[in-house]
Computed example of a mutant assay.
Amino acid sequence: MTTVTQMKCACESCLCVVNLSDAVHKDEKYYCCEACANGHQSGDGCGHSGCGCHS
């Protein structure tokens, strides 16, 4: 049996892969940061290199 330790951020436009132990957990989904978890309400992106999410 394999244990999943990483997965893509649940934000549709985000390219980040998160460690489940470090992820922001909200509504049974895992996000790379609070901005993604909150749906980018203030228009800010995650700020991680190479990722342009902010939808």
Rank of each mutant, 00 (worst) to 15 (best):
G50W: 08
D44G: 11
Q6F: 08
N38T: 12
T2Y: 08
G47M: 02
S49A: 15
G47S: 09
C53H: 05
C14N: 11
C16N: 12
N19H: 07
L20S: 02
T3N: 13
Q6V: 11
G52M: 00
D27V: 04
S21H: 01
N38V: 07
Q41Y: 05
E34H: 15
T2A: 09
V24K: 08
A37E: 00
C14R: 07
E28N: 15
T5P: 00
A10V: 02
G52V: 00
A23I: 04
C53G: 13
L20A: 06
D22R: 06
H48M: 11
T5K: 11
D22F: 13
M1V: 04
D27C: 07
S55L: 03
S55F: 01
C53Q: 03
A35Y: 00
A23P: 12
V17Y: 10
Y30K: 14
H40G: 03
N38M: 09
Q6A: 11
C53S: 07
C16V: 03
V18L: 07
N19E: 09
H48L: 14
C33D: 05
C9F: 02
E12Y: 10
V18I: 14
Q41V: 08
A37S: 09
G47W: 04
G45P: 04
E12W: 07
E28G: 12
S42R: 14
Q41H: 03
V4A: 10
C53L: 06
Y31R: 10
H54S: 06
D27M: 08
H40D: 06
N38Q: 13
N38I: 01
C11S: 13
N19C: 06
A35D: 01
D27K: 09
T3K: 15
D27P: 08
M7W: 08
C33T: 11
K8M: 06
L20H: 04
D27E: 15
C14V: 11
K29C: 06
D22M: 08
C46L: 13
D27R: 12
M7H: 05
H40M: 09
G43V: 06
